[in-house]
C-alpha cells in the first residue's frame, strides 16, 4: 500500500514538474532566452508565497493569484530592460548573460530579504504545514489540476492562438515581425513574462510539498532543464511524459535509499543525452518542424 501511495504522489507531482519544464522548453523553442529565469522565478515566487501566507494568512489559491501576476510584471519589466539595447537583444550570448545576471540578482536579493534558511524563507514553518494537508490528499489533486490547467493554457497560447504566429516569426525572422508592424521587443518580453509566470506558478505549487529556499533556484533550474531536455524542447506531450518518468524515478529511488532518486534522474537524463549525442532537435515533432 505504501508503494501505491508513493506512485500516486509521484503522479500528482508530475504536472507541476511538466509545467516547470514547459516554461523552460517553450521559452527556448521560441527564443525567449529565459533559460535561467525559470528556476529563479519559481524559487522567488515560492518564497514570496510563503511570506505572503505567513503575513496575511491567505489561502493557497489567493497566494498564487497574488504572486503569479507579480512575477509576470517583474519579468516583463526586466525583459523590456534587457532588450533595450539591440546589441544585447541580437546576441544570444549577451542575452543569456544579461538574463542570467538578473536571475542571479533576483535570487540574491531574495536571500537578503528572507535569508536562505527554509524556516525563515517560508515565514516560520514548513510550507506544507502552512498550507495544510498530507502529500497525498485532495490538496495534491488540486495542485495537479491547477498545474494541468496552466499547461493547457500555455499549450493553447503557443499552438492555437494568433500569438503563436508572432512567436514563430519572432524566433525565425524578427525583422519580418517589425515590418508587419509589431514590436519584437514587446513580444519577446511578453512571452518571457508568460514563461516566467508559468515557472513561478510551478514554484508555488512545488513549495506546498516541502520547504523551498531562494537558492533552491539552482535545483529547480536543474530539474526543469532535465525534464525539458528529456521530453523535448517545447513538446507538451514530451514534457508530461518526461515529468511522469522523472517524478516516479525520483520518488521511488528516494524510497529505496535517500539520495538515490536524484542520482537516478541525473543518470537517466545523461544517458539519454549521450544516446542522442546532444542533438536535441531530433526530439521535435513534425508539428514543430512544420511551424518552424
Amino acid at each position: 500500500m505504501r508503494w501505491v501511495d508513493l506512485v500516486i504522489e509521484a503522479l500528482l507531482r508530475a504536472p507541476t514538474l511538466a509545467l516547470l519544464a514547459l516554461a523552460f522548453g517553450v521559452g527556448q523553442r521560441f527564443g525567449a532566452r529565459c533559460e535561467l529565469w525559470g528556476g529563479a522565478a519559481a524559487a522567488v515566487a515560492a518564497v514570496g508565497a510563503g511570506w505572503l501566507s505567513s503575513a496575511t494568512g491567505l489561502g493557497p489559491v489567493a497566494n498564487a493569484a497574488a504572486v503569479v501576476p507579480l512575477v509576470f510584471g517583474a519579468a516583463y519589466l526586466l525583459g523590456v530592460f534587457v532588450t533595450t539595447r539591440p546589441e544585447i537583444a541580437g546576441d544570444p550570448t549577451r542575452m543569456f548573460t544579461a538574463s542570467s545576471l538578473l536571475a542571479v540578482a533576483a535570487v540574491a536579493v531574495t536571500v537578503l530579504w528572507r535569508g536562505d534558511d527554509p524556516v525563515a524563507a517560508t515565514g516560520g514553518g514548513n510550507l506544507r504545514e502552512l498550507f495544510g494537508g498530507p502529500s497525498v490528499s485532495v490538496d495534491s489533486a488540486v495542485d495537479a489540476a491547477v498545474a494541468s490547467a496552466a499547461i493547457l493554457a500555455l499549450g493553447a497560447l503557443v499552438t492555437l492562438s494568433r500569438f503563436r504566429v508572432r512567436l514563430v516569426v519572432m524566433d525565425r525572422a524578427p525583422e519580418l515581425l517589425v515590418r508587419a508592424g509589431h514590436d519584437a521587443r514587446q513580444v519577446s518580453a511578453l512571452f518571457g513574462a508568460v514563461t516566467a509566470s508559468a515557472a513561478g506558478l510551478a514554484g508555488v505549487l512545488a513549495a506546498r510539498h516541502g520547504a523551498l529556499t531562494p537558492t533552491a533556484a539552482v535545483a529547480l533550474t536543474v530539474v526543469g532543464a532535465e525534464t525539458a531536455l528529456l521530453g523535448g524542447l517545447g513538446s507538451i506531450p514530451g514534457a508530461i511524459g518526461a515529468a511522469v518518468v522523472l517524478s516516479l524515478l525520483g520518488t521511488l529511488g528516494d524510497e529505496v535509499r535517500q539520495g538515490w532518486g536524484g542520482l537516478a534522474v541525473h543518470a537517466v537524463v545523461l544517458v539519454v543525452l549521450f544516446a542522442r549525442q546532444g542533438h536535441v532537435g531530433r526530439w521535435s515533432t513534425p508539428r514543430w518542424e512544420a511551424a518552424r
Binding site: 527556448q28 533559460e35 535545483a219 533550474t221 536543474v222 532543464a225 543518470a267
Partner: peptide, 14 residues
C-alpha cells in the same frame, strides 16, 4: 549555447 550552460549545471548536480 544556452543549453550547453544548463547541461553543465545538470552535470554538476549529477
Amino acid at each position: 549555447p544556452a543549453w550547453t550552460a544548463l547541461a553543465g549545471l545538470v552535470a554538476g548536480a549529477a
